[in-house]
């Protein structure tokens, strides 16, 4: 090698080679990372008011299930996703719309009329009819949608 201070031709060329190699490496890695994380970094599509159905279908005091189909663009495919919403009303005017997705690890909950509670089969969780956790591991109540009634039809805000 050299005596420390002076850079000889050999180590100079060595440094240049490492520098060029490093630049090429970065030139590949940075676009590669953008390319890989791209779809994850996309914002969720705009939310829209989705029509559930007639408000009159909701029984007083019992969560009623509405199933609707929403079109979704995933990658280069447009497919239909089914959305299940439980709607509860105590007076026929004020509605609560709850997601059927368990807040523990994402299984689907269902209303068990005989026990007057929602049940999640994955880890035996129970939620009250308002969506509050009664039993089991879920950390929070069931998620709620914004809901509105127009001309006797129910709409929720979702995507």
């Amino acid at each position: 090698m050299n005596d420390g201070k002076q850079l000889d031709r050999r180590s100079f060329l060595g440094l240049i080679t490492w520098f060029i190699g490093g630049s090429i490496g970065a030139g590949y890695s940075i676009p590669a990372i953008a390319y890989i994380v791209g779809p994850a970094a996309r914002k969720e599509e705009d939310q829209a008011w989705l029509r559930l159905g007639a408000a009159s279908k909701v029984e007083l005091g019992t969560p009623t299930l509405f199933k609707i189909k929403v079109e979704r663009q995933t990658g280069w495919i447009t497919n239909e996703k089914e959305l299940s919403v439980y709607v509860l009303t105590e007076n026929g005017r004020d509605f609560v719309a709850m997601s059927n997705i368990c807040t523990h690890l994402g299984c689907r909950v269902r209303w068990i009329a005989s026990q007057d509670q929602f049940f999640c089969p994955c880890h035996n969780a129970a939620f009250s009819k308002n969506g509050e956790v009664i039993d089991g591991p879920p950390p929070r109540p069931l998620n709620q949608y914004q809901v509105k009634e127009e001309d006797g039809q129910l709409f929720v805000l979702g995507g």
């Binding site: 676009p31 953008a34 390319y35 791209g38 779809p39 990658g75 280069w76």
Partner: peptide, 13 residues
């Protein structure tokens, strides 16, 4: 088409 038009840097790759 998805790679070249939708994915960041897809056109480059």
């Amino acid at each position: 088409q998805y790679i070249t038009t939708q994915i960041p840097m897809g056109w480059l790759i």
